[in-house]
């Protein structure tokens, strides 16, 4: 190649967003599979699933729903802020999102903590004593909300990286696809909870 070449930044934001969406599809189908398992066993053990859901704390569940919805909005607003070249507001909004994610996990800690306190956790003696329907309900409850909480933690790590990138200006008003993809991941977490909350806590 020739000696002199001007450096032209090669990037395709549309393609990286498409890539993120393809990844999100795999995540949706992962949780989709679990929802399918849930629906099948629910139809086979309706009374056990009904009684199981009564054990859950709707207030904490509803609170966490609100927390996730607000955090979903703040991260969407962060994209608007970066497009309007408002770096400070972008950082504040990502910060609020991170704080709300933390609040969600604290709530989850207390919720799971109460279950553990009553001897209800995967592999516990109490779980072994439960009939098949209850056992399935609580196994699915711990697995699905646990996997969801894991996604919250991954989302938080992504948002922390995004925060740093905005701060050192590698994410700017004309180059913010990383923020967009991070936000997409965060919305995915919200999207899953939208179905998880009514199915686990409410329908009884």
């Amino acid at each position: 190649m020739s000696e002199k070449h001007t450096h032209i930044e090669h990037r395709d934001d549309e393609a990286s967003k498409l890539g993120m969406w393809l990844f999100i599809f795999t995540e949706l189908l992962l949780f989709g599979g679990l929802f399918l398992v849930y629906s099948i066993f629910r139809s086979q053990y309706p009374t056990s699933f009904h009684e199981g859901s009564l054990e859950l704390n709707v207030t904490i569940g509803a609170l966490n729903t609100m927390v996730l919805l607000v955090s979903s909005m703040t991260i969407a607003m962060a994209i608007t802020a970066i497009q309007k070249k408002n770096k400070k507001l972008t950082l504040i909004l990502i910060g609020i999102t991170l704080f709300l994610a933390f609040v969600f996990l604290v709530n989850k800690y207390f919720e799971w903590g109460a279950k553990f306190h009553h001897g209800l956790y995967p592999g516990s003696d109490l779980m072994e004593l439960l009939d098949r329907g209850h056992h399935l309900y609580f196994s699915l409850y711990f697995f699905m909300t646990g996997l969801h909480a894991l996604h919250i933690i991954v989302g938080m790590i992504l948002l922390i990286i995004t925060y740093v990138k905005v701060k050192n200006e590698s994410i700017k008003h004309d180059h913010f696809v990383f923020l967009e993809n991070g936000a997409l991941y965060w919305h995915l977490v919200d999207l899953i909870w939208i179905f998880l909350f009514p199915l686990m806590y409410l329908i009884s």
């Binding site: 909005m73 969407a76 919305h187 999207l191 939208i194 199915l199 329908i203």
Partner: peptide, 23 residues
Amino acid sequence: FTVTIALLVAGIKSFLVLSYFMH
């Protein structure tokens, strides 16, 4: 109907999140 309505509302909510929050 409880399940149907709850899933319907969840469907509307996810449509809103996908359309506006996820652009």
